[in-house]
Design a protein around this nucleic acid. Structure first.
Lengths: 200, 200
DNA sequence: GGTCAACTATGACTATAGTCATAGTTTGGT
DNA sequence: ACCAAACTATGACTATAGTCATAGTTGACC
């Protein structure tokens, strides 16, 4: 690795590390880029060489976190269990991950909602976690239809959207609540309902 | 009405009117508060006497729009039709309203997501359209359970959340799409699925 | 119609994200 | 070792949302 590459990684890590501490201490909104760069010992402009906006740094935190959770999720997808259980387990993994850092989750869901709109990014570049979840659920449902685990008459894309929506709104409700609600429980029950249907 | 009250209303309307034109012309982000106040013939500080933030003005646009759509929705709720149809019609009303001003919808959904998180506002003050929809759907479902239109075994709150989630994510997908998708169609089909269930 | 309290308007000021021309550093080729 | 090109850092500068002390206006009461 060249000197240049080493320095780049070092600087990026320094920003990541310093801002992580600051965000934890004072919150994202109350931390200025000036402050981050001062503590990291770099010039303000340098920050923007690494992250195009302050929000991009937030998304980077999100990516790091997602790497971890998707390792777990990958495991789940391998298991030989009914589709419903598989989807539930995955959503529970995600929920647990959200539950262990509510503040970050709160900030990220806003960024992801923002992201989803600026359709600038195609399917693959888009690091958006909602989008990623949606694709994964889609794949599992297709598998489920193949296994006769899920009605073959359904529009798989549509159901994937329903499930993503359930995840998103449950997340929002949980964020709004002051900790009385368990995100993972509530989502699990909702998936049961979707599979059973609510009509008489 | 006192002179003071008249002037206040006049000024607020002036801001509303001028900013409406500017937002249409150049978009929300590209319109500055400075510009709005100059065209409205008031000082910058005055703007913030009427709207605490630039985003609050956006929410005001949202409220005005919502007043209109909720008139239609109220009509629907009166009708003597199956619960499923009622909920579908309401969601279609909302979708139509969104479809007739995509840009505003895009901006509002972000603000509403933001709003939902800052749990500062209680159920009643909160003008948030997601929250409002959620409450309405909840009421209709209860009615539906009473009418034996909906399984009595369901947790009504949970199903209301599912439906709100379906609405929200469908909205996001529609916003992301470049007009190929009909928001109202897609949501209607999703409600059918939820009533029927997707399990074999 | 004078006076004071309550309300409202004002615009200079602050805070902060993000830009950009310039200066400095690293690299690969000779 | 030297040079040019490519890359990276820098911090003064800009743009803009939002604040706040001050000045101006309105209304109610005498």
């Amino acid at each position: 690795m060249s000197l240049r590459e080493k320095k780049k990684i070092e600087t990026k890590n320094k920003i990541f590390e310093v801002s992580g501490r600051l965000f934890k201490d004072k919150g994202f909104e109350n931390t200025t880029v000036d402050e981050i760069t001062k503590k990291a010992g770099i010039a303000k402009g340098t920050f923007f060489n690494y992250f195009p906006t302050k929000e991009a740094l937030l998304l980077y935190f999100g990516e790091k976190k997602e790497e971890l959770v998707y390792d777990l999720i990958e495991n789940e997808t391998m298991k030989n269990i009914p589709t419903k259980e598989k989807i539930k387990n995955i959503l529970i993994c995600l929920a647990d991950s959200c539950e262990n850092d509510k503040e970050l989750t709160k900030l990220l869901i806003l960024e992801h909602t923002k992201c989803m709109q600026h359709s600038c990014l195609g399917p693959d570049e888009c690091k958006n976690s909602l989008y990623r979840l949606n694709k994964l659920v889609y794949a599992l449902l297709e598998e489920g239809v193949g296994n006769k685990d899920v009605k073959s008459s359904i529009d798989v894309k549509m159901v994937a959207d329903i499930i993503t929506g359930i995840h998103l709104y449950s997340l929002i409700v949980w964020l709004k609540s002051d900790g009385e609600i368990s995100f993972s429980n509530s989502i699990s029950e909702k998936i049961d309902m979707l599979f059973e249907g609510i009509g008489v």
